[in-house]
């Protein structure tokens, strides 16, 4: 190795590993938010790169809305076992039962109910830091996010009052009850994530690849037919060859018609894509500030 050069993925990787190790060094009770989605799959590999040959020094945490794709949960559980990692799952269902989360009348989406469920889990395990897979290229409010995102004792993000982040020096100091959200993939794009998955030969849940599925057209999107999405009168279902580009809840994740069967196919597809990844998430379309509002309330 005489050419001391890192390519763009190696740069992003070393930046993320550095951040992971800062978390291990500065926090007493960190956790890593692992959903089984493509971004958190990269996070897990980066955690391995940061901490092996030791065991991962932090548990995995997932908030299960009860509306997850079954393929995702199966993958999540299996991957945690393979890595010998501790997996903590907290369910929105249980949070509703215990009164921690209260659904708005008539609201089917569990999206907002993730927030109190997550905050309750943070309190239960006294986590002082949660590593998440959010990326700045996903959404306008996220573009303003820091690597180390300070949250007050109510879990709130205050975009006007963020700690300046200079060079690679992160201020992780907290008072008790406060919390840090840390985003090692901040500088990654959707393309970087898939190229990294390709380079590292990471397994991803099968629903990222094209498969046949019963779909229904709603709000200009193909949604998967499931018990959580009762059909309206006159709605017709169709069997299509589709895949997911980003995974949210099964009731809000738009499916894209795609023949992509491999990671390379997906990379080619994204290179030619004309809509953003979040364009297929109806939870983000609620208003121009949908993400900003959820983040201020404690969303990751």
């Amino acid at each position: 190795m005489t050419n001391y050069h890192l390519d763009h993925l190696q740069h992003l990787e070393t930046e993320a590993i550095h951040i992971m190790r800062e978390v291990a060094g500065e926090f007493e009770r960190p956790a890593l938010l692992f959903s089984g989605g493509k971004d958190s799959i990269c996070l897990l590999r980066l955690a391995e790169k940061a901490f092996r040959p030791s065991d991962l020094p932090l548990p995995l945490l997932n908030v299960d809305t009860g509306h997850h794709f079954p393929e995702l949960n199966e993958f999540r559980d299996r991957r945690a076992t393979e890595l010998g990692a501790k997996l903590i799952v907290r369910r929105v269902e249980d949070a509703i039962a215990s009164g921690i989360a209260s659904p708005a009348p008539g609201e089917i989406s569990r999206n907002k109910l993730q927030i109190p469920t997550l905050l309750a889990a943070i309190e239960e395990f006294r986590f002082d830091c949660c590593i998440g897979g959010a990326r700045r290229d996903e959404e306008k409010a996220r573009a303003k996010e820091r690597f180390f995102s300070y949250r007050d004792s109510f879990g709130q993000w205050d975009p006007k009052n963020q700690r300046p982040e200079i060079w690679n020096l992160y201020n992780g100091r907290l008072h008790s009850g406060e919390n840090m959200r840390v985003f090692p993939l901040s500088n990654w794009t959707e393309m970087d994530v898939w190229e990294y998955i390709g380079r590292e030969r990471l397994e991803v849940p099968s629903i990222y690849f094209s498969h046949r599925r019963e779909c229904v057209r709603r709000h200009g999107q193909w949604l998967p037919v499931s018990p959580f999405l009762p059909l309206k009168p006159q709605e017709q279902t169709r069997e299509l060859v589709v895949r997911v580009r980003t995974i949210g809840d099964i009731i809000s994740t738009g499916l894209v018609e795609s023949p992509a069967e491999t990671v390379d196919d997906i990379i080619t597809e994204i290179a030619a894509a004309r809509v953003t990844e979040r364009g297929s998430r109806s939870d983000d379309k609620a208003s121009e500030a949908a993400m900003e509002d959820r983040k201020k309330a404690g969303y990751f």
Binding site: R136, D137, E139, K140, A141, R142, A143, K144, P159, K160, Q162, S186, N187, T189, E288, A289, E292
Partner: peptide, 20 residues
């Protein structure tokens, strides 16, 4: 690039925004 509501309303940029 002006991602936050206050920015769009006031036509200013509040903080550092990152683009890729």
């Amino acid at each position: 690039t002006d991602g936050l509501r206050a920015e769009r309303e006031q036509g200013i940029t509040i903080d550092v925004a990152y683009r890729y």
